[in-house]
Each structure stands twice: as C-alpha cells, then as structure tokens.
Design a binder for these strands. Structure first.
Length: 225
DNA sequence: GGCCAGGACACCA
DNA sequence: TGGTGTCATGGC
C-alpha cells in the first residue's frame, strides 16, 4: 500500500486547514466572553483539561469576580480556593496575581491596552511575568489582544507529528516558526487554524485516535500511530 | 485505581 | 541544551 505523504509546504498547510474547515466549519474561538476572561483561561488551562477550567471560571463568574477589579480585590487564599477545580490552584493563584500586577502596571488593568503593541515586544514583556511561558503568552497575544502570533500546544505537536510534518519534540519557538513562515501573517487565520487543531485533538486525534472519523486521514501517513 | 488533560519552572548533568 | 520532578483536580 502506498502511504499518503505530505511535504512541509505552504500548500500542505493550506490543504490541512481546508480539510479541517470543511469538517468543522469556522471555530469562532477562544472560549471566553471577554479578552480578560481569555487571559484568565489561558493561565488556568496550563496542563489542565478545559472542562476543569470551566468549573473554575464559573465559580469566579458566579461570585462576580471575573474581571480585573474583581480578581485584584481577592486575597490570595480566597483566589486559590475559588480556582481549585482547575488544579495546581496554589501555583495558578500566584500566576494570576502576577499577571494582574503586570496588567495594572503596564496597561492600567485594561487588556485592550495590549492591542496596540508590537506582538514580539509584548511577548517579551509577558514572558518576564512569573508563570507565563511561551504558550500562555502567545494565547493571550493572539486570542485576547488579536495580534498575529501562532499558538503551539500539545495538540499542535501531536497532530502535526502524526502527519509526519514535524518530530513533535522541537523547541516551542521552532514549531512556531514552522507555521508562521508558511502561513500569511493573519491573526484571524492563526486563531481559527489553532482552534481547528484543538477541536481535532480533543475529538479525534487523541492518544487512542479515532482515525476512521478523521478529516485528515486522506493526508495522514501514520493512521493509528 | 490508573491514566490523561490546550504548562511553567527549578534543578541537574 | 535536554531530561526529570513538582504542582492537583476531575472525568473516564
């Protein structure tokens, strides 16, 4: 049997996106009602399933704390208790606190203030905040600030390594370059492309994949691996 | 009861 | 630079 192959070209990446789009439609994503919620979710979802993050966000929302001023007024222990369902809650409470301090100092507590920044400079500043690494910074920059940086996550690594286009263990920035040098610098495209990858990774391209349902099966050389 | 889930960081070789 | 342990809850 001749296995299908893909080359790491602009055309391949466009074809993959087209197949995902045909199956799932536009994602209209990130799951958060406001840019501030996106930032909170980006920190809470570190190494955590989104369903657990939703529980924590719901608790904050229920108590009307899901805003800069609402969170900033919370004592550390109270904040940690509220986000407990998202796991690593003591660590994440510290990280949220550090982000709030950053937002207050740099943008007067307004996420919208980030939108006018150069994305690379904003990234450097976010990376200086304790607890904000590359993926979290890029998620905030793309999904909250609307600036063009491609987000690489565990789903991205899994899907594209199974497609044979990357090894999967490359350093974060190398994988980000892989996408950004092959796709037009368009935040709406980066947003939807990554959202499609997440949708595929959650539903189909899992540790035990359901390859029979996969819209990328026609181009995937490693079905079931 | 074990495995897994949209990381970041400290520490070590 | 790369590997490993830590941080923790909840669903399946």
């Amino acid at each position: 049997m001749v296995r299908p192959t893909l080359a790491p070209t602009k055309r391949s990446l466009r074809r993959i996106y087209g197949l995902l789009l045909a199956r799932f439609g536009h994602a209209g994503w990130w799951p958060g009602k406001t840019p501030f919620e996106v930032c909170v979710g980006a920190i809470l979802t570190q190494s955590t399933s989104w369903s657990n993050v939703e529980k924590a966000l719901a608790r904050l929302r229920q108590r009307r704390r899901l805003s800069f001023r609402g969170l900033a007024a919370l004592p550390p222990k109270r904040l940690a208790a509220l986000i407990r369902p998202s796991g690593y809650y003591r660590v994440k409470a510290r990280r949220l606190r550090a982000f709030l301090d950053f937002l207050a100092a740099e943008y007067g507590g307004r996420v919208a203030g980030m939108a006018g920044e150069d994305p690379r400079r904003l990234r450097d500043r976010l990376l200086a905040v304790p607890g904000i690494g590359r993926e979290t910074a890029d998620s905030i920059i793309l999904y909250a600030a609307g600036l063009p940086l491609f987000v690489v996550d565990a789903y991205t690594r899994r899907v594209f390594s199974r497609l044979g286009l990357v090894r999967g263990n490359e350093p974060y920035d190398e994988l980000q370059r892989f996408f950004m040098t092959r796709l037009p610098r368009d935040p709406a495209l980066y947003n939807d492309y990554h959202a499609q990858i997440v949708r595929l990774g959650k539903d189909i391209c899992r540790p035990q994949p359901r390859c029979a349902d996969c819209p990328l099966a026609v181009v995937c050389p490693r079905r079931g691996v």
